[in-house]
Design a protein around this nucleic acid. Structure first.
Lengths: 183, 183
DNA sequence: TCCGCACTAGACCGATTGGTCCAGATGGGC
DNA sequence: GCCCATCTGGACCAATCGGTCTAGTGCGGA
């Protein structure tokens, strides 16, 4: 662990490419070329090869995004405000790629590591949403977190297919409208 | 067009495999072996190769699923009832593979046909939901369709990651709870 | 100074990829 | 009976796949 940079560079490059093209859509050679890291280094840091790299990259980018999620909610006065901020953020990032979970789930058939990494990221995000819902005084934070995770993932799929953040803007509108009705 | 069976067999086999493993996770050889169709026939029916087959298979399975969607709503007294029936159906089908849209969106980088097919399927489904919402007397069918499409896609992603239909059951519960509140 | 370990660098491997090509089978219209 | 178009069957191709292996590099501690 003396050299964080090579390992982290691989994680960042790999997760970028996986999110853009999907796990099976990216070859190791492409990751190596983009990162400038030779093959020997990859197999030194990830002896399990592509599958281990894929699982690690998924968890890594999952953690990065979760920290952004936390920040969005911490600077918001209500849960709805936090969700609106999050939608704006994810909308701006549509061009950077799809949801990291979506990028690896279908490759879970080949290697259980990948499916497990995807599950773990979803669980973390759900727990994170639940905690903020509870903190901001929402009733039934468990169900609210589940429902919003669903809507976020769905918006991400649609936005990726359309290549533009329209779906996230729509979701943002829905949430604000629902809040107005509740007041 | 004398022989529909070979072409249709290819479409069915390909969409099955693509939904299970993703577009880039399936090789042509696997499709050919599973269907028993030789390579020459594939390139006769789909001169554009894998991309054309992928786009056609996506639209084909999209149409099949839309017909099931229609049936679920036609035998329901309210929009919520239709959605609940649809959730049950999709929940039972989780093992059959992910959403066909999700299977090809990320491969849209390689070939625009695939992205366009994914968009077209989403548009069809959205239009279909909107029509049923309107027919069943829902106010603002446009937005309702959009929101439910989002939730369905999100539930599908989560259910695929978890390998079980829990997410669809949750979505079903949410919709029924929301209906009770509105009454 | 020199040893030892963590790491880099990339040549090399067999398997598989998507794609091309053509020889043959088939069948309906003349 | 013949012919042409449609379709099938599969050999063959270069390129790329993920993975292995080993020689070399550089640095920290004894």
């Amino acid at each position: 662990m003396t050299d964080l940079s090579t390992r982290d560079l691989l994680l960042k490059t790999a997760s970028d490419l996986f999110r853009r093209k999907g796990y099976d859509g990216v070859g190791l050679s492409e990751i190596l070329k983009a990162s400038g890291v030779p093959k020997g280094s990859l197999y030194h840091h990830f002896p399990g090869g592509k599958a281990e790299l894929g699982a690690a990259a998924t968890r890594w980018i999952g953690g990065v995004l979760q920290r952004r999620l936390d920040r969005a909610f911490e600077s918001s006065a209500s849960f709805t405000d936090g969700m609106v901020a999050l939608c704006a953020l994810l909308g701006d990032w549509v061009a950077l790629g799809a949801c990291p979970v979506m990028s690896v789930v279908q490759a879970g058939d080949q290697d259980p590591q990948l499916r497990e990494a995807a599950r773990a990221v979803l669980d973390d995000w759900r727990g994170c949403l639940r905690a903020h819902a509870e903190r901001l005084g929402e009733p039934d934070p468990e169900d609210l977190a589940e429902q919003l995770l669903m809507q976020l993932e769905g918006a991400w799929v649609i936005a990726s297919a359309e290549g533009e953040p329209r779906a996230f803007r729509k979701l943002s509108d829905f949430l604000q409208k629902a809040q107005k009705l509740a007041i």
